[in-house]
Design a protein around this nucleic acid. Structure first.
Lengths: 177, 177
DNA sequence: TTTCACATGTAACCTGTTACATGATTGC
DNA sequence: GCAATCATGTAACAGGTTACATGTGAAA
């Protein structure tokens, strides 16, 4: 149940429409919390109903701009400071690794190399973002920059692991002890 | 849609009941794909209906043991070899980092330190599993061992990042340029 | 005038979670 | 006899995805 909090977080920076928020999701946020537009719009309606956000203005093309309320700010703060951090994590790509023994070692290694390549591509993409942006001291940007660094380190670790694992898999499946 | 494939993977090793499978999930698999028992039982019924698994025996207390069929093995193989690997990934813990700028730097750093501690605890737990198990050359175990190594490296990277980020956050929010 | 970006949704469906419900067998 | 473990589910709900549906305004 984190989508509402992601929206509150974005709105705490500045008022925005659903359309604006969807674009902001694509700029980095979707890497840790993807969102569909249907879900964003319905969640905004729900947050409005509950008084956590409110309509602060309307524009052309039935644009509705939402702003965070004091209640919304309180809820955002509660979510950030209360200690229910679950490292819960789901990855189909990693799940597959558990079952690579059902393939032959070449196929398994190929899968791991592909996984490595994907992570390398992501690393390159993040590197480009890192190099192109001008990192001023703005607190909002600082947090984005920290997340970007997480992505860089994580992609690198994943790629190196996968290359190593491909080698180990080949060796250990082909020369059984 | 990976739960059915996780079940096929487990059953490709040996026949098992829903109850057995749930226990096997807790031994490592749940780290990358958690499953509820209600979902496991209903998914088994669905896989049976579709002919990917079949009942291979019954036991005391209405135990029903399922085995994978040829069609199931084919589907498992398809899932492993076809290249739709999405690195899609959701983490509420990391999502929060984007919004730490709404707290003061001490609170933000405290959050990151807590995140680091959690990852350290996980690292220690995985280390214990690593040290206690006897890693024979069994292909099934090799894959489990590769995953374990992923967990170790990932936890370590996450912990180190979080400690670094806590420092950066304090420094950059308290001494704005 | 036509195309593109802006802008907002609804409906159907699938996946996953939580709570509830039931009964059988083994070991003490 | 009682408790623990084995064993299987159902029902209600929450969260997330996909497809469909509609209309506005600006610029070329």
């Amino acid at each position: 149940m984190s989508l509402p909090h992601a929206l509150l977080g974005l709105l705490s920076e500045q008022p925005a429409s659903g359309y604006d928020l969807l674009k902001r999701f694509d700029e980095g946020l979707s890497a840790v919390w993807p969102a569909q537009k249907s879900q964003v719009y319905s969640e905004l309606a729900k947050l409005d109903e509950n008084g956590l956000i409110e309509i602060t203005g309307t524009g052309a093309r039935q644009r509705r701009e939402y702003g965070i309320t004091d209640a919304g700010r309180a809820e955002l703060r509660r979510w950030l400071t209360e200690p229910d951090l679950d490292l819960a994590f789901r990855s189909a790509a990693l799940l597959r690794v558990f079952f690579l023994w059902t393939l032959n070692s070449g196929e398994g290694a190929a899968y791991l190399e592909k996984f490595a390549d994907h992570n390398h591509a992501r690393l390159t993409a993040l590197q480009a973002i890192h190099d192109n942006a001008k990192w001023v001291g703005d607190p909002v940007q600082v947090c984005g920059w920290l997340m970007l660094e997480y992505g860089l380190r994580g992609s690198e670790t994943a790629e190196q692991w996968a290359r190593w694992a491909a080698g180990e898999l080949t060796e250990r499946l082909d020369t059984p002890s």
